Simulated assay, not measured.
Amino acid sequence: MAAKSQDQLTLQGAKIAIAAAEAEARAIGVDMNIAIVDASTHLLHFSRMPSAKITSISIAMDKAFTAAGHRVGTHMYKEAVWPGGVAYGLGNSNGGRFTTFGGGLPIKNAKGDVIGGIGASTGTPAQDEQVVRAGVEAVEEVLREEGKRSSKL
């Protein structure tokens, strides 16, 4: 049986996502910590803008980790993790890295496979999500321009 190959997010793709996310952060006036991980949840690229909160560095990384590892945006858990919710306590999993508030999104190829994740932190969860969405959309746009989703990004 042949091994299945999977598209991978490269450093080039991560830099595209970071540049777009930083531009969005500047547009809304909130310096951010922005992390990109690969599909295996390992850090691929990181940016800390000048006024981003030091305490948000690990939060941005954990949002990217959660989005890539669980394959959905971190905002999806908001209601489920409250006391009595179906996923109450989930935030304590993975050594406390599992993030259950907005600001982390998976990065997917055309087939819907997760090739990475992006997380941002310093603003409100809505601002963080707006910033990471810009990063995801930038990667998707480049892939559309290439006419395919390949391992080039």
Score class of each variant (00 low, 15 high):
residue 147 G to Y: 03
residue 121 S to Q: 11
residue 17 A to T: 06
residue 135 G to M: 09
residue 133 R to S: 11
residue 77 Y to L: 13
residue 58 S to H: 15
residue 60 A to V: 11
residue 60 A to N: 01
residue 152 K to E: 08
residue 12 Q to K: 14
residue 148 K to I: 05
residue 120 A to C: 05
residue 82 W to L: 12
residue 115 I to N: 02
residue 41 T to W: 05
residue 60 A to Q: 04
residue 96 G to L: 00
residue 18 I to F: 08
residue 93 S to C: 14
residue 95 G to M: 05
residue 56 S to N: 11
residue 139 V to G: 03
residue 61 M to L: 14
residue 88 Y to W: 08
residue 102 G to S: 01
residue 78 K to C: 08
residue 98 F to C: 10
residue 134 A to R: 06
residue 135 G to Y: 07
residue 100 T to H: 00
residue 20 A to E: 05
residue 60 A to D: 02
residue 38 D to C: 09
residue 143 L to P: 00
residue 98 F to A: 05
residue 115 I to G: 00
residue 113 D to P: 00
residue 128 D to H: 07
residue 18 I to Y: 06
residue 70 H to P: 03
residue 128 D to K: 05
residue 53 K to G: 14
residue 63 K to I: 03
residue 52 A to L: 07
residue 152 K to L: 13
residue 67 A to N: 00
residue 116 G to Q: 03
residue 147 G to T: 00
residue 33 N to C: 12
residue 128 D to W: 12
residue 115 I to T: 06
residue 87 A to L: 14
residue 21 A to I: 08
residue 22 E to Y: 12
residue 52 A to G: 04
residue 63 K to M: 04
residue 61 M to I: 12
residue 86 V to Q: 15
residue 96 G to A: 01
residue 97 R to H: 05
residue 113 D to S: 07
residue 131 V to S: 06
residue 19 A to S: 06
residue 28 I to P: 06
residue 95 G to C: 04
residue 117 G to I: 04
residue 149 R to A: 02
residue 74 T to E: 07
residue 100 T to E: 04
residue 144 R to M: 09
residue 136 V to L: 12
residue 79 E to R: 06
residue 104 G to A: 01
residue 119 G to D: 01
residue 63 K to C: 03
residue 8 Q to L: 15
residue 3 A to L: 14
residue 34 I to L: 12
residue 128 D to V: 08
residue 17 A to E: 08
residue 38 D to L: 13
residue 141 E to Y: 09
residue 28 I to Y: 10
residue 95 G to Y: 02
residue 113 D to A: 03
residue 53 K to P: 05
residue 48 R to F: 09
residue 21 A to C: 09
